[in-house]
């Protein structure tokens, strides 16, 4: 069996009496974009810093492409690339000098061609010989990716990668990541921006108060449980008549949005019935909109449940 690009087993971190991270385990396969999701202060950054061994682990194991980071640190680290928090560089050196600097620290030699290739990949050819202090945040982010990719790692870890990027930059960044994943590189992303994770990742876990509380793939996440109530908007020729008709069905939680549209909460399978009823009574329906549950809603839902449980 092929190794997973990254495997984390029962990772935990204790500072004083507080468990900042508590028994977190997950695996990331090659070519997969994996999201680490959670509110600020949930312990995402601590998890990432433990994986790249900037922070000592209180407990747990980290395997990078099957190599145990404890028993074979250098070999494991050589298969990993990362940007931890902001992409920081030596501002007084050029982008190229910075890359050369990191290239020298690789265990496997990195050729001139490889550096040029990476620079081209991240679209920095025109600016690479300028000092990093002249770079925009987007350019530094790209240089960060370049630096992480130089030595052909099995996995790259990006901590809050879209922080401070403009929408255009975020879109480009997303495309870059997809290209990388298609080449078989695993990507670990942390973010508190739920919509971002939703757009970028194949799979994600939610971290809350240092614990892994939910794990899912984006695709399962999209077909939300059938019985759950959704917000449904009917665009009709007359809101008044429609509301009256629905009242007769003893559905009272109808909100009149405008003269032409009403909104109500329905489980998925009820939508067709309501539609049939309205049409039968000569209401012209021009549009039915079911608001898709976003990751954001699920996230808040899940974290709220968690909180309620904690209260109980």
């Amino acid at each position: 069996m092929a190794n997973s690009a990254l495997e984390v087993q029962a990772l935990s971190k204790r500072i004083g009496n507080k468990l900042i991270v508590d028994g977190v385990s997950f695996q990331i396969q090659k070519g997969e974009i994996f999201g680490l999701l959670g509110p600020n202060g949930a312990g995402k950054t601590t998890i990432i810093r433990m994986i790249v061994s900037l922070i000592n682990r209180t407990g747990g194991k980290v395997f990078i492409d099957g190599t145990d980071i404890d028993s074979n640190f250098s070999e494991a680290m050589n298969k990993l690339g990362a940007i931890v928090e902001n992409p920081e560089f030596y501002k007084y050196m050029t982008g190229y000098q910075n890359l050369k600097h990191y290239a020298r620290m690789s265990l496997s030699p990195i050729s001139q061609e490889r550096i040029d290739e990476i620079v081209k990949l991240v679209d920095l050819e025109n600016a690479i010989h300028q000092k990093v202090k002249t770079y925009s945040l987007g350019m530094r982010q790209r240089l960060g990716v370049a630096q992480a990719l130089l030595h052909n790692p099995s996995i790259i870890i990006l901590d809050e990668p879209t922080n401070g990027l403009d929408p255009q930059g975020i879109r480009e960044f997303r495309q870059h990541l997809r290209t990388l994943a298609d080449q078989g590189i695993a990507v670990l992303i942390s973010s508190h921006l739920l919509s971002e994770i939703e757009l970028m990742c194949d799979r994600y876990v939610i971290i809350e108060k240092g614990k892994l509380i939910h794990s899912a793939s984006i695709h399962e996440g999209n077909d939300v449980e059938q019985e759950q109530l959704r917000e449904v908007i009917f665009t009709v020729n007359s809101s008044e008549t429609a509301i009256k008709l629905l009242k007769n069905l003893s559905i009272s939680n109808v909100v009149k949005k405008s003269e032409q549209s009403i909104m109500l909460m329905l489980p998925y399978e009820e939508i067709a019935k309501i539609n049939a009823h309205l049409v039968k009574n000569e209401i012209a329906i021009s549009e039915i909109t079911v608001t898709r549950k976003t990751l954001e809603d699920r996230f808040i839902e899940i974290t709220n449940q968690q909180e309620e449980m904690a209260v109980k």
Binding site: V52, S53, L54, F73, S74, E75, A76, M77, N78, L80, A82, I83, V84, E85, N86, E88, F89, Y90, K91, Y102, M105, S106, L107, Q147
Partner: peptide
Amino acid sequence: GDGTIKQLLIRPYK
């Protein structure tokens, strides 16, 4: 101060 220490210490060197 510049935060570059992080990038420096995630290399394959003790």
